[in-house]
Structure formats: C-alpha cells, structure tokens
C-alpha cells in the first residue's frame, strides 16, 4: 500500500521523459510525497511512543482508583506513596548494586573475550557457537538452564561442589549470592554480545597502525594507553551505556530464578514495577515508578546514542 503512496504525486512517466528536466519532474513529490509516505509511520510513533510518554508523566500526578481509573489530581501523592514503600527502597538499592556489578564485569569480560576471539574470529565454528549461543537464545531459556544447573542438591553445580567436599550449596537461597547469580547470568548472556562490538572496534584500527605499533612498541603498554584505548573509547562508552540500560531493564532472569526473593534480595526496579502494576494492582505508586523509569531509561539510551554519535553518527 505504501509503495503506491510514493507514486501518488508523481506524474505519469512520460515516454519522451529524458527531455524533461529532472528537478521539475520531482517537484510534486518533494511537496507532498514525503508527508504522505511519512504520515502513517509517524502517526504510529506518535501514538505508541510520544503520547504514552506524555501520558506516563501526566498519570503519575493523578489519583488512581482501584481499577486504575483516574479519580482526581493527586499532586505528588503517588511519589510520596512510592517512596514510603520499604520494598521500593530495597529494589532501588538492589538495582544499583546489580547494575554496577553487571556493567563493570560485563565490559571487562567482553574486553577479554574480544582480545581472545579477535585472533580466532575466522577459525573455529564450535567455539563461536558455544560462546555466542547465550547471545541468540532468549534470557528466559538461559535462566531456565541456570535454574536447572543451580538447583540445590539435584543440580549439576551442587553435585560438582559435593564431589569436592562442599555440601549444601544453595546459591539462590541467600540474598547476596542470589543477586550474584543474577549478575553472573547477565555477564554470561551479554558479555559475548558486547564483545562483538569491541571486536568490530578493534578491527577498525587500521592495519598500518597495528603494524607500526608492533615494531615500535613490542610490549604494547604504551600503544594500548595512547592509541588503542582512545580509538576504542567511544565504542567502550557505547557498550557501557548499553550494558547499563540492559541491566536496569532486567526482569526475565528475576522472574524465572528468584521472583525477587529470598527476602526481597533480588527485587529489581523493573520487576518491582511489574509487581506493583500487575500483581498488587497498586496503580498510584506504579504510575510514579513508571515516570521515574521512563526518565532514567530514556536518559541511558539517549546517552548511548550520543556515544555512538561520537564514533560515527550523523543526525541529519
């Protein structure tokens, strides 16, 4: 349907076309055509992105009834209610710890993987399939695999530990180690993915530069600090903000592995939002949390785009 729109304002192709100057022929399209083509997709973005953004902000100041309907203006009452929930503050703290640990480990592991694999990128398919299998599978499947692996006593992890004399391991049964498992799963799932970007960045370093470095600075230390790192910095900044965005959005692994427990030790903000909205039907605090999440997630992904722009990104 949309392709016909393109020809909409276009005059009939004329048999003797070449005689006519091109600019005049294209003019009708330039006047109306772009808008006709852009109307539907732009309307979809307005309807499903722009309007919800405004609504999310507005709704957080409304009083909401038991069924989510607006019952009046509430000012900051939703925010007050949210911040008075102990679980919200716990979730916020958990998320900070989780995101910080996940991002740092993820970027470091991705860097190491990129170093290790860039020498072998064309080489062994089984290796690539095994390293990148977590990248192509859903987080739910990955979490299921880990759940199966970590189940106390019956899981292989426990059996392996048992074989070396460590009994009663129950990583998901204690708040600290359960959060640690979530971090490890995040790194396992996403570090290879981010390594791909770092590898692409490494490959973008011109061959001549690499060879010059190899002869002039065999230990590589100076080269790393003065040449490689600055060249990769925008890519690393992009990967870091993306990792941060992904970690704040985490919910799948919590849903499968811990349901926020034990003792709320793995309740992350996204999971808490799901709980507030779709389990507690606590619409007021949910609206306030939505607005806060919208602001922070959008800031993060905006920052990652700016990181990209510094690399090679053109707005216009």
């Amino acid at each position: 349907m949309s392709t016909t729109v393109v020809s909409e304002a276009e005059p009939e192709p004329q048999p003797g076309g070449p005689a006519q100057p091109a600019p005049r022929r294209r003019r009708p399209f330039t006047v109306l055509g772009p808008y006709a083509v852009l109307a539907l997709p732009a309307a979809l973005v307005v309807g499903f992105v722009a309007i919800p953004i405004v609504q999310t902000a507005v709704r957080s100041f409304d009083l909401l009834g038991v069924r989510g309907q607006v019952t009046g203006f509430g000012g900051l009452s939703n925010y007050r209610a949210l911040f008075s929930q102990p679980l919200f503050l716990i979730s916020l703290k958990n998320t900070l710890v989780y995101a910080a640990a996940s991002v740092v480990l993820c970027v470091v592991v991705a860097w190491l993987l990129a170093q290790l694999l860039s020498a072998r990128f064309g080489a062994s398919r089984p290796l690539l399939v095994s390293v990148f299998s977590p990248t192509v599978m859903p987080m739910i499947a990955a979490a299921n695999i880990w759940l199966y692996f970590l189940a106390p006593r019956i899981g292989l992890f426990g059996q392996l530990l048992g074989a070396i004399g460590v009994h009663g391991s129950n990583l998901l049964g204690e708040p600290g180690s359960a959060l640690g498992v979530l971090v490890a799963l995040f790194v396992w799932k996403f570090a290879p993915y981010f390594a791909l970007f770092i590898m692409a960045g490494l490959q973008a370093i011109p061959q001549s530069v690499r060879e010059a470095l190899r002869t002039e600075d065999p230990t590589g230390r100076y080269a790393f600090r003065r040449v490689v790192l600055p060249m990769l910095a925008p890519m690393l900044a992009f990967v870091t903000t993306m990792a941060l965005l992904y970690s704040v959005e985490t919910i799948d692994s919590v849903y499968v592995l811990t349901q926020g427990g034990p003792n709320n030790g793995t309740s992350l903000v996204m999971y808490y939002l799901y709980q507030l909205g779709f389990n507690y039907f606590s619409w007021g605090p949910a609206a306030a949390l939505s607005a806060l999440l919208m602001a922070s997630l959008s800031t993060l992904s905006g920052l990652s785009l700016i990181g990209l722009e510094r690399r090679a990104f053109h707005w216009q």
Partner: peptide, 17 residues
C-alpha cells in the same frame, strides 16, 4: 520522532502501552 522511538524503549512506557 524516529530517534525518540529508539531512545524510549517500550519498557520505559510499559503501563501506558
């Protein structure tokens, strides 16, 4: 507008969606 679609993930406006 189309950049906005990238910048604001669906998860950020979940309840309104």
């Amino acid at each position: 507008l189309f950049l906005l679609q990238i910048v604001v993930p669906v998860y950020a406006i979940l309840i309104q969606e």
